[in-house]
Amino acid sequence: MARIEGIAGESDSQTSLKVRRVVAYVVLIFLVLISLLPFYLLLINATRGKTQSGLKVIPEGLFARNLRNVFSDNFKTNYGSFLRAFANSVIVSFFATTLSVYFSALTAYAIHVYDFKLKKPIHTFILIVMMVPTQASAIGLYRMLKGLGLTDSFIPLILPGIAAPAVYFFMIQYMASSLPLEIVEAARMDGCGEYRTFNTIVLPILKPALAVQAIFCFVANWNNLFLPQMLLDKQEMKTIPVLLQMIKANIASNPMTADTGLMNMFMVLAILPVVIVYLLLSKNIVGGVSLGAVKG
């Protein structure tokens, strides 16, 4: 980010520069406020009661009540156990992320390191596949899994992680800039097998890229609604976003009996893990968004 400070033209109207700076800060602060306001209101509303009418900016005292209600038997019979859904989300996200990151690195390694006839066509093919939304084949997938009796299973949510074109693309870009082929050759000279070279020598080099992609994959899986909603019917298999969608459907159909405080508390708990991870690793995450773009 090192930039040569403006050498020339510095003298031309310092006042207009000041005005521009003030305008910039005002706009930025406004955007910060509208980005954070919803979350502030969420926290406030999680301390409010069953029916919430109007705007409150100061918390009320029902935080503990709402928290208890999320873990109550009543909630369990209505929507299923929160802890169970939480565990399901963790399981699916963890395994899908691990598979995505490991196998995308392996796929990228195959294309990056080896020379074979189909290398370029396969690379192009994966890039094309990357552009096709998974939803386009969802109906076929659903009918197929239904036929196989695999709809209430985590397998179709976890295994497809192995073929993650976007992660592949990121990995191969990273390898192009940070994985010299000489290292692989040196390992061969020392008699290291190809698969072992990948696991013991290449993976450690890729660590920064693996970490960034792992964060993004985990968040994407944690937040995923479409496919889990399509596949998971059994209450004890559902993930957090699916439960959330059920709560919304219930509130929309029975606005009289709906517990808004409970709903807001559920949302706080649903986004909390990601918010914590984000705040701890925000530097890496924000940096990771454009990683590869700034790398020459």
Binding site: V219, L225, M263, V274, S282, I285
Partner: peptide, 20 residues
Amino acid sequence: TVMYLPNVIMASALSLLFYS
């Protein structure tokens, strides 16, 4: 950091929040 935050939040939670 603040501007990227909504991107990592569960889209369905963010939407339900705006709904309420």
